[in-house]
Design a protein around this nucleic acid. Sequence first.
DNA 1: TTGCTATTTTGCTAAATACCGAAATAGATG
DNA 2: CATCTATTTCGGTATTTAGCAAAATAGCAA
Lengths: 99, 99
Amino acid sequence: MNLVYKALADPTRRKILELLRERDLSAGEIASHFSLAKPTLSGHFSILKAADLIQADKVGTTIIYHLNISVLEESLLSLMNTFNLPSPQSFNSVEDVNE
Amino acid sequence: MNLVYKALADPTRRKILELLRERDLSAGEIASHFSLAKPTLSGHFSILKAADLIQADKVGTTIIYHLNISVLEESLLSLMNTFNLPSPQSFNSVEDVNE
DNA sequence: TTGCTATTTTGCTAAATACCGAAATAGATG
DNA sequence: CATCTATTTCGGTATTTAGCAAAATAGCAA
């Protein structure tokens, strides 16, 4: 989990995830949204991959990145649970709350 | 918001927040849960304070730290919204979903 | 094969981070 | 006042991080 939280701590990486939430994008398409060198972005991709937040698929000479939305969702819910904060899960069983 | 996400990226700081979720604690009480030097913990407190995640109240010679649970909650919900992930807010108006 | 395009890997800096011990601060107490 | 306790601030080091340009890789196409 720590890799995920570390990955989310950087604004550039959060922006990358936001872009990928809309649709899959190639490394170059993602890079075009930033004024950072491509190797720099490539480094961010590695970090996001290591955290399992994104997935890479090579199509010919381009690499298409895809957001692992479930990993992101589970990580954030797990963090909410850590702090006993209300999350969709909290609504699972009203009975538990009342007894 | 970035200060919050940066603050949450460190495991020691997340642990501090978890401890404070149970009850308010003095700097020394918190320190007793870690094998880190007090100046190191004090540095973590500053970072959490700068992110407005905790609050410090001086009582005599001791400092009592208190978790700002609402700030933590709003930050995490805001992150979930950023990625269009389901959160309690999503349930606010079923009408919006249906029209 | 040669060359073109997309991307990563390498090698390098500068800045940020986490840590520590020693010194400083501040409130309470004899 | 002198001292004790709780905590922070200071000064320093080691590690990690984010950035870049240049070189390497890999697939495609002429």
